[in-house]
């Protein structure tokens, strides 16, 4: 069953809100931030206060704040800020979950002994804490689902959201892709990739490590195909493993690929694309598993504007000039390091 994309809410390295993403697409040049002297993309959460009172946020960590911010912006974008949400499902896809709070919990017992393990940090470190905060703050009492599947998190979770709508379990799904960065993650990336992460991020250079850590939340309000779509539709979600059974790319669709400067995944893109033209937007938001949600947000904006925007960055490999979509389909392709892939087919 097709899913209507009714609203979008994003916070990431390019800024927050659909307008910020749209202007980044218009500008076509990435703006990379910096943490500890290393290039990094960070997501803002300052606007969350407009949606949630400060007291309600006292136990809510950065990961859940990004989540709530993205979710509330998506609802606002849909014009659903004040409606009954008892039939709105919540689905969240995340590659790593809340990293900072996981380490804060470890801090509590490594620093003060096991008897001083913090129950608040523990509760918030559980992967579905962010979804729970969304349900509570929005009184969304329908089913809630959190999925973690590294690079496949977004396509996998989307497949289940689609079934909820098809089976009539919910009228709408508030779907989000969230990941956060932290000091330990940056340390690990440096250990794994050395100085390969100095930027710029060159998604089309498949054989080179050029990833830059990013974070953010990308949310969508999805409904059954009979409902109006402000952006476009998700037609089909397909997951598989290219190493076991080669991916079949839709012939006439334009392609947005999730290549984000990771060498281990690059080889799969190279193999599957076989020289086909594609667009890649990771230089706007950086490299993290849930960034596939941002690829989908770009697809949504592109369908709305009927324009395939220029891929940002210096490399010419997959660089396209902006062009009209002319009712053409758009497919998002994401690979994991083991050849596993997610295909999200979208159209107007």
């Amino acid at each position: 069953m097709r899913m209507a994309i009714q609203g979008v809410g994003v916070t990431g390295g390019f800024g927050c809100g659909v307008d910020a993403l749209t202007s980044a697409l218009h500008r076509g040049e990435p703006i990379v931030g910096e943490v500890d002297g290393v290039p990094a993309y960070q997501a803002a959460i300052e606007g969350l206060g407009d949606f949630v009172p400060k007291r309600a946020l006292r136990r809510i960590d950065h990961f859940s704040k990004m989540t709530l911010f993205g979710a509330f912006m998506a609802l606002k974008d849909t014009g659903l800020s004040d409606v009954d949400r008892s039939r709105m499902g919540v689905v969240i896809a995340t590659g790593y979950g809340t990293l900072q709070t996981t380490f804060k919990f470890l801090d509590s017992y490594l620093d003060f002994g096991y008897a001083c393990s913090s129950p608040t940090h523990f509760s918030n470190s559980v992967h579905n804490a962010a979804a729970a905060h969304v349900s509570m703050q929005m009184q969304a009492t329908a089913p809630s689902l959190t999925v973690t599947q590294f690079e496949m998190s977004v396509s996998s979770a989307l497949l289940s959201a689609q079934q909820w709508l098809a089976e009539g379990r919910v009228d709408q799904v508030l779907f989000g892709a969230v990941d956060e960065s932290c000091e330990v993650l940056r340390y690990c990336r440096k250990e794994f990739f050395g100085d390969g992460e100095q930027g710029p991020l060159r998604p089309a250079n498949f054989s080179e490590q050029s990833a830059i850590a990013g974070e953010g939340a990308a949310f969508f309000v999805l409904a059954a195909e009979t409902q109006p779509a402000a952006y476009g539709y998700i037609d089909e979600v397909i997951l598989g493993n290219h190493a076991t059974c080669p991916v079949k790319l839709p012939i006439s669709d334009e392609l947005i690929v999730g290549a984000d400067g990771h060498q281990a995944c690059g080889q799969w893109y190279q193999e599957a694309l076989k020289g086909r033209e594609f667009a890649a937007y990771a230089p706007f938001y950086g490299s993290f598993p849930a960034a596939a949600g941002f690829d989908l947000a770009v697809a949504a904006v592109s369908l709305r504007d009927q324009t395939l925007y220029t891929s940002p960055g210096a490399d010419a490999g997959g660089r396209l000039l902006p062009r009209k979509l002319d009712q053409q389909g758009l497919t998002c392709l994401k690979f994991g390091g083991g050849g596993e892939y997610g295909l999200i087919r979208c159209s107007s």
Partner: peptide, 25 residues
């Protein structure tokens, strides 16, 4: 990074299909 339960089962058996690790506590 190697230890996603659904992925490990799928990879070990060389399966082709959707994988999902549900983390609803």
């Amino acid at each position: 990074l190697r230890s996603n339960p659904a992925d490990v089962v799928a990879r070990h058996l060389k399966l082709d299909g959707p994988t999902q690790t549900v983390v609803n506590a």
